[in-house]
Design a protein around this nucleic acid. Structure first.
Lengths: 256, 256
DNA sequence: CGTCGACTTGACTAAAATCAAACCCGGTGG
DNA sequence: CCACCGGGTTTGATTTTAGTCAAGTCGACG
């Protein structure tokens, strides 16, 4: 009975090895038949090119998604035509959950780079979850984690100082890179300054100045979208309003 | 077969008639035995006095809550000691879902007025949901709606102009009052200016000025916490950056 | 090698935070 | 009944901050 299970596990792990959904796709206690059934749910999708939309505001909830390659942003455009970025989604992070409440997507998902996604049809997912308690639990947890990210976003937006927002953004992005198994102190930003700005509730110039400031304070190294974290502790400090000490007086002081 | 069901429904409806969880507690297609089982989950809790906490940051997930009387706020205090308000919870609105992702609460829930809550132990809720597909669906939906509220909050915080945030806040609060069966154009705010400010990412003086401005523009009537909406359309307009037209030039113009 | 888009930097302006003073209102006690 | 708190709120004057406008710079790509 455990022979075919091992095979299925190996295959699934191979296809989703870097995926945040491992814990969703591979509940700890499921037998071979369940696993095989689960396997049928995950669908490969054709690749998307940079700028292409995966779903749009108003689309009915069909599936939730995970990028296996590339990154996405979810955005809303308000009545005045401004675009707000609700979230960034790195490879391996689940997104598209925004439609669960109403049955329709409230935002648009756009590929920030060429990308490839796995699609999990929602109806099938829930119907299988109904028969598989461990999957139900995992599903709830993953949804909850997505809500946690929204809370982090709110926390970010509530910071008064623009510099704090930028620092916290860099730091949390770093953490997320670590979680998906990539270097946390040296990475390439998949998004533009403008997109960061629309995520942080700032304008792009202010974001740029934030990066520059962190750079000249020796906290990070920035060249365009390439970021390297030199002093994580200082970064945390800067994210919590502690960077006053670095260039304290606005008076004519070079540094230290 | 339909006789005993009708009785249970009547009793449940009576106890939760104003409750947003009606659709969770009363799935459309459940038989009498299921209903009775669900009934056992909901627990009445002793009343809380103003300022009392229902749960604190770090507490393990035990239950989710609905106030039957009174209102709550959920807050986080960051490292610098500032308190951010993550959400306001009117009677009938579900809260406490923030712990689903990690198993621990990430924020603190405080009664803004004397209050009374219903408690839904989470473990029981999910185990029953596992046997009751319609309840599982309702549970997901309610969680999704909670995420929708977070998105609205993000949307609010992304607005550039302080006036827009205040206007949008008043408007969305008005909608929520309507949904719980209270007058949407004449209500008492359960929270202070300071709490609103911490929710909107502003300082209390700015919030106060926002209210005053809406008042003198004839959009709402404000006296302390009493709010009456005079012109809903103008309120929506103000929430979307359209109130420039009311007092356009900063030059020395009295009004119209 | 030139062009274009993304990013940086600077000077100025608009907006919100801060600091500080009144105000209003509900409650208390003379 | 009225004087007097005291908290929450409003309002005003000033300072700080981020937004705006406008040049530049950098780098990728044809």
């Amino acid at each position: 009975m455990s022979e075919p299970v091992a095979l299925d596990l190996a295959r699934l792990r191979r296809s989703c090895s870097e995926c945040s959904l491992q814990m969703l796709c591979l509940p700890t206690s499921v037998d071979g038949r369940d696993l095989r059934r689960l396997d049928t749910v995950v669908q490969r999708r054709k690749p998307l090119v940079k700028g292409e939309s995966l779903f749009r505001s108003g689309d009915p909830l069909r599936a939730v998604y995970v990028a296996s390659e590339g990154s996405f942003k979810t955005v809303v455009v308000n009545t005045s035509g401004e675009e707000h970025v609700l979230g960034f989604h790195l490879p391996g992070e689940l997104f598209g959950l925004d439609a669960i409440g109403s049955g329709h997507h409230r935002c648009e998902a756009v590929a920030m780079t060429d990308a490839r996604v796995c699609e999990l049809p929602f109806a099938q997912l829930t119907s299988i979850a109904a028969q598989l308690p461990s999957l139900q639990g995992q599903l709830l947890r993953v949804i909850g984690q997505s809500a946690d990210r929204d809370h982090d976003h709110v926390d970010l937006l509530s910071r008064r100082q623009a510099g704090e927002r930028v620092a916290l953004f860099v730091h949390s992005l770093s953490q997320r890179f670590r979680r998906i198994g990539r270097p946390a102190d040296d990475f390439q930003l998949p998004m533009s300054r403008d997109e960061i700005a629309r995520y942080l509730g700032l304008v792009l110039e202010t974001v740029s100045r934030g990066f520059s400031r962190l750079h000249e304070d020796g906290v990070i190294e920035v060249r365009g979208r390439r970021v390297r974290i030199l002093d994580e502790e200082a970064l945390c400090l800067a994210a919590n309003g502690g960077n006053d000490s670095l260039t304290p007086q606005p008076r004519k002081r070079d540094r230290a």
